[in-house]
Simulated scan of single mutants.
Amino acid sequence: MNQRRALIMLALALLLGLAAVALAARWLLHPAPSTGRRIIVAASDISLGQRLTPELLKALDWPAESMPRGAVQDSARLVGRVLRSSVLRDEPLSEAKLAPAGTLGGLSALIAEGKRAITVRVNDVVGVAGFALPGNFVDILVNMQASASGSEQAISRIVLERILVLAVAQEVGRDETRPKVVNAVTLEVTPAQAESIDLARSVGTLSLVLRNQIDPQPGVTTGATRNTLLHIEAPPVAVAREAPVRSSAPAPSAVMATRQRHCINVIAGTQRIEECL
Rank of each mutant, 00 (worst) to 15 (best):
L48S: 00
S207M: 03
P236L: 11
D90Y: 02
L7Y: 07
A11E: 11
D198R: 15
R178D: 12
A76F: 10
R26L: 09
L88W: 04
L110Q: 05
E188T: 07
L78T: 04
N212Q: 11
E176N: 04
R51L: 10
D90W: 00
E152P: 02
A192G: 02
Q3L: 03
I267F: 09
L210V: 00
H231F: 12
L230E: 07
L199W: 01
N212G: 15
Q73C: 06
C263Q: 15
P236I: 01
V172D: 01
A238R: 14
I232W: 08
I155R: 07
N143S: 14
G127K: 02
A240C: 09
L277I: 03
S34D: 14
G135F: 05
A99P: 04
P216K: 06
S44M: 12
Q73M: 09
L56N: 05
T35D: 11
R5V: 08
L15K: 10
I158F: 09
E161A: 04
S149M: 14
L14E: 12
H30R: 11
A112I: 02
Q153C: 00
R4Q: 11
D45I: 05
Q50S: 05
R226S: 11
L10C: 14
V142C: 14
R261D: 11
D74V: 02
S66R: 13
A13M: 08
R211S: 04
L210T: 02
L10D: 15
D74M: 06
A192Y: 03
R81T: 03
R26I: 11
N183P: 00
D74T: 02
D215A: 13
G49N: 01
C263L: 10
R174H: 09
G102S: 08
S253M: 06
L133Q: 04
I232H: 08
G135E: 06
D74G: 00
R261E: 09
P100L: 07
V203S: 11
P250K: 04
I158K: 03
P134V: 01
G173H: 05
A59R: 01
V79D: 03
P235A: 13
R5A: 09
E152V: 04
Q3D: 07
E65Y: 10
R226V: 07
I197Y: 01
I163C: 04
V165T: 02
L187Y: 00
R84I: 12
I267S: 07
L208R: 02
L206R: 01
A249M: 05
E176Y: 02
A25L: 08
H262L: 13
A101L: 08
T222Q: 15
I158R: 06
A76K: 06
D198N: 15
V142N: 10
A59G: 14
E171D: 15
E161Y: 00
E171T: 09
N227I: 09
I46G: 00
A22C: 05
S85A: 12
L57K: 06
G219W: 13
R116I: 09
W62R: 03
L104C: 06
S44L: 14
H262E: 15
S253R: 13
P244G: 13
T35P: 09
